[in-house]
Simulated scan of single mutants.
Amino acid sequence: MKGVKIMIIEDDRHDAGLLEDMLLDHGYEVGGIANSLQEALRLFHAIEPDLVIIDIFLHGKKDGITFAEQISEEEDSRKPFIFLTSAADRNTFEAAKLTAPFSYLLKPFNELELQYAIELAIEKFAGAPAGVFAMEEKHTIMLQDIFFIKRGNVLAKIALDDIQYIEVEGKYSKIVCNKEKYLVQQPLKLILGRLPAIRFVRVHRNYIVNIREVAKVNLIDNEIVLEDGRTVLFSRRYFDDFMRAFDILR
């Protein structure tokens, strides 16, 4: 599991360093720091962050707002962003509000305020109810090809490409990846409904499989053998759906 990749736009070197340290301490990945509009636009398209924290004023101009407007123009390039500023006047707030920021932070702020702002921004961008991460430590939010999951005080992400299979474990579902496993407090049926059907198929009442991970099928033992040698049971009830999806992928 990787930390959420965050890009910082901040022209004050000291403030940028403090913010970077806070993010790293909480398990986030800092994809890069930009201190001007031009550099920010170049870096944004180069690193494709999961979230951007934007200082409204860059070298005395409201270039942070200009940046937010530009990345919001195209649907494919939109990302959640948080405005950061020391300006508490109403005019600045109203100008920033027109870009529909996903959260807003006033300097100085503490680590807890930063954490809440990040969680709220991702929830809002995904269209999830506010406070989802606070309600369930093992709740997930899905955006494009990524599951965002909260574990303790860390908000991290699981790429769909890394998932081998998902199985029922009591009242939880266990997401099994190449190197790690994660328990989420959501039923298998709900998770399946959020996954792309062409890639993930239910093969048993207790299992969903990433068909890209399938190496072969053992019809005698009702087993699906994955690329790393792990096996997952399948049932005849779901076998036809599995084979149709597998044919489409090939």
Rank of each mutant, 00 (worst) to 15 (best):
D76E: 13
D76Y: 11
K79H: 09
F81M: 10
I82P: 01
I82M: 05
I82C: 08
I82R: 00
L84H: 11
T85G: 13
A87M: 06
A87G: 02
A88K: 01
R90K: 09
R90C: 00
R90W: 05
N91M: 01
N91P: 04
N91K: 08
T92P: 02
T92S: 03
F93Q: 00
F93I: 00
A95C: 04
K97P: 10
K97E: 05
T99A: 14
T99F: 03
T99C: 14
A100E: 06
P101G: 07
Y104F: 15
L105R: 02
L105C: 02
L106K: 06
L106F: 02
K107E: 02
K107Q: 06
F109M: 05
N110I: 11
E111N: 10
L112H: 14
E113C: 00
L114T: 00
L114S: 00
Y116M: 04
Y116V: 06
A117K: 00
A117D: 04
I118T: 01
E119L: 07
A121E: 04
A121M: 12
I122Y: 04
I122K: 05
I122D: 03
E123W: 04
E123P: 06
K124S: 13
F125W: 12
A126N: 12
A126S: 15
A126D: 09
G127L: 07
G127K: 07
A128T: 13
V132N: 06
E137I: 14
T140Y: 11
T140P: 12
I141Y: 05
I141M: 11
M142W: 15
M142H: 09
L143C: 13
Q144C: 13
D145W: 14
I146D: 12
F148G: 04
F148H: 08
I149C: 02
N153S: 14
V154C: 12
V154W: 05
A159C: 11
D161M: 06
D162S: 09
Y165W: 14
E167D: 07
E167N: 14
E169Y: 14
K171G: 07
Y172N: 06
K174A: 04
I175T: 10
I175E: 11
V176A: 12
C177I: 13
N178C: 13
E180H: 13
K181M: 12
Y182C: 01
L183C: 01
Q185R: 09
Q185S: 08
Q186P: 03
P187M: 10
L188A: 07
I191H: 01
L192H: 15
R194I: 12
R194H: 08
R194D: 07
L195F: 08
A197R: 15
A197K: 15
F200P: 02
V201F: 07
R202H: 06
R202I: 04
H204C: 02
N206L: 15
Y207F: 03
V209P: 10
N210Y: 11
I211N: 15
E213F: 15
E213Q: 07
A215C: 06
V217R: 13
N218C: 10
L219M: 14
I220V: 10
D221P: 02
D221M: 11
